[in-house]
Each structure stands twice: as structure tokens, then as C-alpha cells.
Design a binder for these strands. Structure first.
Length: 734
DNA sequence: GACCTGCTGCGGATTG
């Protein structure tokens, strides 16, 4: 306890908290705790606490918060903590339970699985600490709007857990709006405490936490020494498709998946690991292969699937296998295990396929190597065997080069910044309806002031806001009563009064998969499945025995064969500009990273040879058949913007990620096109967006007019300045 | 050419 006694921060805490720290057997406070305690106790500024998972962020916030609450008892909810996951709320509840009860501070959790009786109790006696989801908070505004003031009149702190998970998303904008509305109701500013993973650009996190007031937000970042990282990137080749005697294509017997599965099996068996795959179908495929390898060897299964379409029960089975220290267990998973759910120590991380981004790779790696040990990452990259007519993307070994570029940027501690400029009109619609429900009615002028002028939707122009109100009125969501106030229209009433209203995001219709009365999970309704069809789901093999379109259920029984269902893919993650630029540099360099296996080295050499053969260090576009490939080495947002710009000039384009393909064009025509673009101002983003086929991507988009949707698309998906700069760069002499 | 997240009130049956 010597460290604690010497610490100034420790002495500032309430004595009962000091005793609790003693009782935990802690020798000293962590650096972020030392730094955060005085800032939070002073309660004069907003604070961001940034550190990797399991570095004591929750305590850094709650030791001083509970200290302050214990000293100044007051009526109403004193601390609001908003968290993105029900599972995280339950984790946090368990961690704070003992401390809160020692201090006599009531602790409430509120989400969809919490019984209504607990919620009623809080509404009757608002007090203490409330941990809640954004959706449940929205329900509070809609269903108990007149009570919000009295519930939160004594609010001392607003905590946002996993701040990084909210930044740049619809849900994040919803949360900003909710915190702002709360401060409006109680007519006072409440200190905000954001708990975040370490981010590339802390200024964006500051601006997110306190829009318009980021300069005063204090940041506490962990200075804990950089963790050692052990890396291996393994290369695999997929043989070209063979034709059998009937001419049907079939995969070569030695598919790389089998090889990867055996390597995972021998390397990971006996320890606890996370294997990240890039899609749910791939998770299912490997979970099934690895389970069978265990079975073939006659040993207990050690491999468990985890993804968003598996039922809560199956996911909890996997989480329990990870937490169980008495036996090894490895999860094959998607992003579901990226966020900070408590799963204990993890020996290593595997990544199948190129990682989706630098930031998610950092999150994944942060899961491994607790307790001072090195973090271990193995990446498994498959490239196709080349043939004479192989596409250039295969010849360049893009998957492998992208993986190397990702690791480069990761080691430089760079990561993708979120995009803060989007209008988020869908969420604005939700918040307008919610405000009307909260107050019963609303005038247009204060709505503009509270949501846009001084609120979180500050990038809207006044005429855009008026356009939104007109759209909503035309679609029956709102109407003006005789005194000029906005009230809900018939359609608006129906939307707001359905429980589906509270989430800012959409979700697809799904069938439930049921085996012997137990729900295994769900799948989208678009899939074409037939009775007696075979299926891999939850890492096991099934036969479909019944499909009920009315009940939306699929009944299955255990079977011998099967394949993973085709989950409806969403949009791919955009590759960031910095990553593509780094890929270009890697192609031009000759250095070979030491973490590559021999086969990965050979693939890298092939990629570089082909890059040199096509002279891509000098040439910016080249003919392929009757098309031209343009290589701007820029991120996907700029590439998509360039594609739309060329389409506006009457050209047909397809984005290959690594290149932009101009159909039916010669090299000199491509040059002329770029010169034309360089000589003129680009059209506006909204003009370009009008050519996009489906602009209605988000929940409340169906109630907005086309021109607003085009504005929304342009601000969230396009980069005009970047596109113009890229055109000029493509024409620079080299 | 990917992934993920969330949700109320009420009616009716069952149990102590």
C-alpha cells in the first residue's frame, strides 16, 4: 500500500473508497487512475480516459465519481453511464456492485433484458448510478418525457463507455443528441467522461465528446510501456480451378483451407485464443473443420464459433469456454469479440484473410498478451495460383501487400480516424420525432436551435432543416396544429409508438434456426433454403426438416454433411487513403519483412515482380483488353468519388479497389478524360450522389426527399477535395 | 465487396 499512501490522488479519494482499494490488495494506482482522479473530482471539465482493454479505465472513472457521490448525497440519478452492449453493462454492473453497496450508493442497470420491475423502481426513486444503452435512454425520453427533468435534476456526471465504438456512427450521433437534450432539460452542463480505446487522433474524440467545446476536454492516456508484438504472416496458394471430364469446375483436393485449419489446430490446441475471420460464413466453415479435427483425433472439442447471427445461448457457450481456466478453448469469431467483453487472458490472435482495417487489428491485438507477455498475431493469407489470364489484382498479391501495409501502420501506431462531417439525416429524423414525443409538441424555431444551431447536427444548413421538416410533413410523420406547433402525424404516431423506434440503425428480417426446441440463431429471409437441405450453423452440421414462413422459423436436425449459409453481405469496409499509399510504397521497396513465412516471401516477390513488369511505379494508367485501369493509389472514398465523377462525364467505371476500371477506352482517351477533369471544377457531391442507385440506406431515409438523401450520401461517402487532388497527382510528370 | 449493436407494454397462463 506504500504507493497508494504516497499518492496524492489516493489521498483525495473518500476514505471508504481508500479502504476498498486496500481490501482489493492493490499496491498502487495505475497511471491513468492517478491522472484521472483529480480531474474528475474537480468536475470542471470533460475528460477522456484512453487505454487498452483491461487497463483499469472503469476504476479510473468510477473511483473518483463514487467518491464525489458519497460525499455529497443528492436526489435523483447522480451518474449516467451509457454503454453500447448489454453484455458490457452486465460486466460493469458486476464490477461496481460491491463497491457501490459498501458506499450505500444504489446501482441500476437498464436494458432490454432487465425486468420492468427494476425500471419502475428507479422511476419511483431515482438515485445513484444508472448504466443504460442508448436505445433504452431513447425509450425513457419517449415514454417518460415529462419525468426526464426530475429524474436527472441531480446529475453530476455522464459517462460514455467504449467511446470509440460510437464515434462516426448513427448511434454515436444519437448519443450526442441525447446528452445535449438531457443538459437542455436540466438547464446545466454536466461533465462528460469518455472511456476509450487508444485512438489515432484524440482531437476527433474530444470533438465528439463535447461538440463545439473540444478545446477544454482533458485527455488522460495510458503511458504504459509499449507491448511487445510477435508477428507471423503465412502465405497460401489456391490452385487454379480444375475441370473434370464433364467440364464442371471443381476445387483442387489440396484446398488451402484444409492446410490452414490443420495449422490452426496444431498451433492453438491446448491454449486459449481468438481466430478472427472476415465473414460469418468463414467462421462457420472453420468452426466445423476444427471441431471435426478434434473428433477425428478422439479428443474433446476446443474450437467454438462466435458471430452476430448465433443465439445468445450459443455465444455464451463460447464465452464460457474462453473464460474457463481449467481447459483450453479457442473462439472462431467476427467483430463480436473485438469489444471489451470480459473473456480473460488470451494466448494469441489469428487473422484469416487480410485484416479489415488498422484500427480493428489494433483492437484485436489488444485482446492478447495480458499480464506483460507479448501479444501474438498470426495472419493467414490465401492468394490464387497465377494463370495466363489472371486478373492484375491477383498478380499483384493485393491481399498480402495490404496485410503488410496494415502491420506497418499498426507498428507506427497510426489508425483510421473516424469521419465527423456526415449529416446523419436519418438520426436527425429520429431525434425530431423523439423531441416531439418528449414534449408533446414542438415549435420549428427551438427545434432548429436545439438540434442544429447549438446541437449535434451543426453541419446542417437552415434550408436543409426546413427541407427535412417539409419531407416529414409530406410523409405524414409530423403536422402543424392550429397554433403553429409541430405534432406527430398519423405515420409518426405509428412509428414512435412501436418499440422498434428507439434504435437509430436498421436490422433485416430474419428466420430463427431451431434444433429440438432450442434456438441456435438467425439467418436473413432472402436465403433460398429447402427442406432436406444441409446446413452448417453454430459450427455443427444440420439437415433442414421444416421451414415455416409464418412463424419465420427453420427446424433442423443433426446431419453428416452441410455448408455454411450465405449470409446477406453488407457493404465492404472502405480502405483508407493512408493504407493504399503505404501499399504503393511497399510495392516499390525491396525490403522483406522478417515475419513472413517462405511462401509469403515468394508471394511478395511475385507481387513486386508483376508491379515492376507493368511499370506501375511510373505508369498511372494502362490498357487491359478494351478497358483502361487507372492506379491512383488512394482510399476507397476518393476512388468511389472519381468513379462517380467519370460517370457524370458519360463514362462507365468499376472500382477494383486497387484500380479504377474505365470500360471501352484507350489509354489516350483516359489521359484526355483526366485532363478534362483537371481543367474543370468537379460537380458538387450532391450532384454526383444523384446518380447513385439506392440512396435509402438508413432507417428513416424512406421519409426524406431525394435531394436531402443526395446531400446525406455526399457528406458520408464522398471526398471531392481528395478526388480533385488525386486527378492533379495522376497528371503530374514523373 | 464486412462486421456489429438495440427495443415496450400488455395480455394471458401459471404458481404460491
Amino acid at each position: 500500500m506504500e504507493g497508494s499512501q504516497e499518492s496524492l490522488a489516493f489521498r483525495e479519494l473518500d476514505q471508504r473508497i481508500q479502504r476498498w482499494i486496500w481490501s482489493q490488495g492493490w499496491n498502487e494506482l495505475r497511471d491513468i487512475q492517478e491522472a484521472a482522479i483529480p480531474l474528475i473530482l474537480a468536475a470542471e471539465t470533460d475528460v477522456i480516459i484512453a487505454a487498452a482493454t483491461a487497463r483499469g479505465k472503469t476504476e479510473a472513472a468510477f473511483l473518483p465519481i463514487l467518491s464525489a457521490l458519497a460525499r455529497r448525497p443528492d436526489a435523483g440519478v447522480r451518474t449516467l453511464c451509457v454503454s453500447p452492449l448489454k453484455a458490457l453493462i452486465n460486466d460493469q454492473f458486476r464490477r461496481l456492485e460491491g463497491l457501490c453497496s459498501d458506499l450505500g450508493i444504489p446501482l441500476y442497470r437498464w436494458h432490454g433484458d432487465v425486468p420492468a420491475s427494476f425500471k419502475k423502481k428507479l422511476l419511483r426513486h431515482p438515485e445513484g448510478v444508472l448504466v443504460i444503452t442508448p436505445e433504452s435512454l431513447e425509450a425513457l425520453f419517449v415514454l417518460h418525457g415529462s419525468q426526464v427533468g426530475s429524474l436527472f435534476e441531480g446529475l453530476a456526471y455522464a459517462v460514455i463507455d467504449e467511446l470509440h465504438a460510437f464515434i462516426g456512427t448513427e448511434r454515436g450521433r444519437q448519443l450526442q443528441s441525447q446528452l445535449h437534450r438531457l443538459e437542455l432539460v436540466i438547464a446545466r452542463r454536466v461533465p462528460r467522461i469518455g472511456l476509450s480505446a487508444t485512438l489515432g487522433d484524440m482531437n476527433l474524440a474530444r470533438e465528439f465528446l463535447r461538440p463545439g467545446g473540444s478545446a477544454a476536454v482533458r485527455c488522460v492516456e495510458s503511458s504504459a510501456s509499449r507491448q511487445e508484438v510477435r508477428l507471423q504472416v503465412r502465405g497460401y496458394r489456391r490452385a487454379a480451378e480444375l475441370k473434370d471430364q464433364l467440364g464442371a469446375a471443381r476445387e483442387a483436393a489440396e484446398a488451402p483451407e484444409g492446410e490452414i485449419a490443420s495449422h490452426l489446430f496444431t498451433t492453438l490446441r491446448g491454449t486459449t485464443n481468438l481466430v478472427f475471420a472476415n465473414s460469418r460464413a468463414i467462421v462457420e466453415q472453420y468452426a466445423d473443420r476444427l471441431r471435426r479435427l478434434c473428433k477425428d483425433l478422439g479428443v474433446p472439442n476446443e474450437f467454438w464459433p462466435h458471430h452476430g447471427n448465433l443465439s445468445k445461448g450459443l455465444r455464451e457457450e463460447t464465452e464460457a469456454a474462453l473464460k474457463d481456466r481449467s481447459r483450453p478453448g479457442t473462439a472462431i469469431c467476427t467483430t463480436t469479440l473485438e469489444l471489451g467483453i470480459d473473456i480473460g487472458a488470451i494466448a494469441s490472435i489469428a487473422q484469416i484473410g487480410a485484416p479489415p482495417s488498422v484500427s480493428s487489428t489494433r483492437q484485436r491485438l489488444g485482446r492478447s498478451g495480458r499480464g506483460g507477455g507479448p501479444a501474438v498475431l498470426r495472419a493467414y493469407i490465401v492468394e490464387r495460383e497465377l494463370q495466363r489470364d489472371s486478373p492484375l489484382g491477383d498478380a499483384l498479391r493485393v491481399q498480402l501487400i495490404q496485410t503488410i501495409a496494415t502491420i506497418d501502420l499498426l507498428l507506427e501506431r497510426w489508425c483510421e480516424p473516424p469521419l465527423p462531417v456526415a449529416l446523419h439525416l436519418s438520426t436527425l429524423v429520429q431525434q425530431i420525432l423523439s423531441l416531439i414525443a418528449q414534449h408533446g409538441a414542438l415549435r420549428a424555431a427551438p427545434a432548429w436551435r436545439d438540434l442544429c444551431e447549438r446541437g449535434p447536427f451543426s453541419s446542417l444548413r437552415r434550408e436543409q432543416f426546413v427541407g427535412v421538416l417539409r419531407s416529414l410533413s409530406r410523409h405524414g410523420l409530423i403536422q402543424q396544429d392550429h397554433s403553429g406547433e409541430l405534432v406527430l402525424g398519423a405515420v409518426g404516431e405509428r412509428l414512435v409508438n412501436h418499440y422498434g423506434f428507439y434504435a437509430a440503425f436498421t436490422s433485416p428480417d430474419e428466420y430463427r434456426i431451431v434444433a429440438d426446441g432450442r434456438v441456435l440463431g438467425s439467418m436473413p429471409v432472402q436465403i433460398s433454403l429447402a427442406v432436406n437441405g444441409l446446413l452448417i450453423f453454430g459450427g455443427r452440421r444440420w439437415r433442414i426438416v421444416r421451414i415455416d414462413p409464418q412463424q419465420k422459423t427453420i427446424d433442423v436436425q443433426p446431419a453428416q454433411g452441410g455448408r455454411p449459409p450465405a449470409f446477406v453481405p453488407t457493404e465492404a469496409p472502405p480502405v483508407h487513403d493512408a493504407l493504399r499509399r503505404r501499399m504503393f510504397e511497399i510495392f516499390r521497396e525491396t525490403a522483406v519483412p522478417t515475419y513472413l513465412t517462405d511462401r509469403a516471401m515468394a508471394l511478395l516477390a511475385e507481387g513486386r515482380d508483376n508491379f515492376a513488369r507493368y511499370r506501375l511505379a511510373e505508369v498511372r494508367w494502362l490498357a487491359e483488353g478494351d478497358a483502361v485501369l487507372i492506379f491512383p493509389w488512394c482510399g476507397d472514398r476518393i476512388l468511389d468519388t472519381l468513379g462517380l465523377w467519370m460517370r457524370a462525364l458519360g463514362r462507365e467505371t468499376v472500382s477494383y479497389g486497387i484500380a479504377l476500371c474505365l470500360a471501352r477506352t484507350t489509354e489516350s482517351e483516359a489521359g484526355h478524360l483526366l485532363e478534362t477533369m483537371a481543367a474543370s471544377e468537379p460537380p458538387s457531391g450532391s450532384e454526383l450522389a444523384r446518380a447513385v442507385a439506392n440512396l435509402r440506406r438508413e432507417k428513416f431515409h424512406p421519409y426524406l426527399d431525394e435531394d436531402l438523401l443526395a446531400d446525406d450520401y455526399a457528406t458520408s461517402r464522398l471526398d471531392l477535395a481528395g478526388a480533385r487532388e488525386t486527378v492533379l497527382r495522376l497528371l503530374e510528370p514523373r
